[in-house]
């Protein structure tokens, strides 16, 4: 008989993992449908009911396509890169709390796989490792466009990681904790962090767009200049892995955003604990709805704005966001000193 908490953790891992994969599938469809709607089109609506089986068809197509390895590619690195991108993208969901603690019999199961005492840093560390996938894909393809895309992306990701990390510091300062559990609990008591750290939220929002390589910051792909960027030379399932990890990163970033600034699974004006397991369900739904909004925002922004030029991107990162984030840390510090 396995101890209850190990079993519960395994179940949670399974649920989170499959939910993430399902959301990735849903996102690929949503991206196409929303973009179509914004362009007065209908989008894919023929596979399955209203097109909901389209991701399955796409996945099948990816698996069945010919897997090409370019002659000039550096084989070990070329093969390793999609894995390096994919694994951190899926691992980051582990520390995100996605609901109020669930009551199962006599146990309280926190709806979070692991509440690490370095939760925020864990995510930052994993996303910074994810950079390697892109850089190595660019280099390992043995082709110039992927290389350019990879180099651009590494510079971009490092630049925006700084602004992102600094914007988090404000939140950490007012919350006084690095774990997601503490941050969400704090927001439940005193209201969402967006009201207290609006500047940090804005900087963080911009930074996660840059971190996930989404428009208007998709310098790594930039079809018009770089063909497909780092995944130009990838085909078949290896391409699918890049594709999926992009969406997985978006999901994580949205969940991150929601947990930090929008109260995590907190349902406004409702006391989840008083409602028992109904409240738990409500909180999970609230979390999903909030994450869904940010995922929609990703798509929405993508089909609204043109791409930044590379120098504009760097200027925004270093000369605007970084000083703003520093100023935010400073002001938060002043406020805390004044309060204390």
């Amino acid at each position: 008989m396995i101890p209850f908490y190990i079993g519960a953790t395994l179940v949670k891992v399974l649920v989170v993992f499959s939910a993430t994969l399902l959301m990735i599938m849903a996102m690929t469809l949503a991206e196409r449908r929303v973009s179509a709607f914004m362009q007065y089109r209908l989008g894919p609506n023929r596979v399955g009911w209203g097109g909901i089986l389209q991701p399955v068809a796409d996945g099948l197509k990816f698996i069945l396509k010919e897997d090409i390895i370019p002659d000039k590619a550096d084989r070990p690195i070329y093969l390793m890169a999609p894995v390096i991108t994919m694994v951190p993208a899926l691992m980051t969901m582990a520390v995100i709390p996605f609901g109020a603690p669930l009551q199962v019999g006599e146990y309280m199961v926190p709806l979070q796989i692991a509440d690490l005492n370095i939760g925020l840093l864990y995510i930052l560390a994993l996303t910074s490792v994810g950079v390697y996938g892109i850089v190595l894909a660019g280099w390992g393809s043995g082709s110039k466009y992927p290389l350019l895309g990879g180099l651009r992306s590494s510079a971009q990701l490092i630049s925006y990681e700084l602004a992102m990390g600094l914007s988090l510091i404000g939140v950490i300062m007012i919350t006084g904790g690095l774990t997601f559990g503490e941050i969400v609990a704090y927001q439940q008591e005193t209201g969402w962090n967006i009201w207290k750290q609006p500047l940090a939220a804005l900087i963080f929002l911009i930074a996660i767009f840059a971190e996930t390589n989404r428009l208007p910051f998709d310098m790594t792909e930039a079809e018009q200049e770089l063909v497909g960027g780092y995944h130009t030379e990838y085909s078949s399932f290896k391409f699918a892995m890049f594709f999926m990890s992009e969406y997985a990163n978006m999901i994580t970033a949205s969940a991150f955003m929601v947990s930090l600034f929008f109260g995590g699974w907190d349902v406004p004006f409702v006391d989840e604990a008083a409602l028992g397991n109904l409240g738990v369900g409500l909180s999970v739904l609230a979390f999903l709805a909030k994450v869904g909004f940010f995922l929609f925002l990703y798509i929405w922004v993508r089909w609204t704005f043109p791409r930044f030029r590379y120098d504009q991107l760097m200027r925004l990162g270093w000369k605007v966001l970084l000083p703003l984030a520093l100023a935010n840390v400073f002001l938060t510090g002043l406020y805390l000193v004044w309060k204390a």
Binding site: V34, F37, M38, Y40
Partner: peptide, 15 residues
């Protein structure tokens, strides 16, 4: 810009 695309989403589709 965001408002524009959002409103356009609910227009009649040309497809």
């Amino acid at each position: 810009g965001l408002l524009l695309t959002l409103v356009r989403m609910f227009r009649r589709k040309d497809t």
